[in-house]
Design a protein around this nucleic acid. Structure first.
Length: 207
DNA sequence: ACATTAAGTGATT
DNA sequence: AATCACTTAATGT
């Protein structure tokens, strides 16, 4: 478990993490944080994956990105240092192991440990990049590309080309309607890129 | 066999 | 791309 951390952080920092962090195993579907809640801890995903999404005023959901092993949430850095309430919701996508770091250590570690600082910078950069990507996908209204991206991500996260999802679930993740998703999926199926079943999508070729 | 839920489709905005 | 209305197919009881 710590092997992953070893490759990223310096020894002294690892000791500190050992002392200050709390480790927890999270069951699939567990909500880690919801909107409005104040962030008090920074999560680092060790195994599994966590889905981070935005919910609008009408309760409509929009998937932002996944946290994979050795990734953390950029929102948590910015939010919790200033004690701002969360603007996102995070739910465990599968059974996961997560390390929680208290916010109190943030300032101190940033100056003390170069590997921590670069970790923080890397994750902020990575998330920001990811966000920009989804933003201009939405701006240019290319839902088909968003769907392809979504399916690829799902396959990567789940480690399998077989996705157990209903069209409905896909639609809520992408904040659109089921009918639209069904049509796009059908189009992809006709292009022999995937096969459709009830509550299941099997990816065949390159999307 | 019947009810419920998921998926497919044409027409309309 | 979204919504409506409706059909068809798969699943659960």
């Amino acid at each position: 478990m710590t092997e992953l951390l070893n490759t990223v952080f310096e020894p002294e920092l690892l000791e500190e993490i050992e002392k200050k962090a709390s480790f927890s195993s999270i069951k699939a579907g567990t909500k880690l944080i919801s909107i409005g809640q104040t962030v008090r801890q920074v999560p680092i995903v060790l195994s599994g994956s966590v889905k981070v999404s935005r919910i609008d005023d009408d309760g409509k959901e929009l998937l932002l990105y996944y946290l994979n092993p050795m990734e953390s949430c950029a929102m948590s850095f910015t939010c919790c240092m200033q004690q701002f309430p969360s603007e996102i919701e995070a739910v465990a996508e599968e059974d996961s192991e997560v390390l929680f770091l208290p916010i109190s250590i943030m300032d101190e570690w940033l100056v003390k440990y170069p590997t921590w600082k670069s970790f923080v910078m890397r994750t902020i950069h990575a998330r920001f990049h990811e966000l920009l990507k989804t933003v201009d996908q939405i701006a240019f209204q290319q839902l088909d590309e968003r769907l392809a991206h979504y399916l690829k991500e799902k396959a990567k996260v789940g480690g399998s080309p077989v996705l157990n999802l209903s069209h409905e679930q896909i639609a809520t993740d992408l904040a659109t309607s089921r009918v639209v998703i069904s049509r796009l999926l059908k189009k992809l199926e006709n292009q022999k890129k995937l096969l459709l079943y009830r509550n299941q999508v099997r990816i065949m070729g390159e999307l």
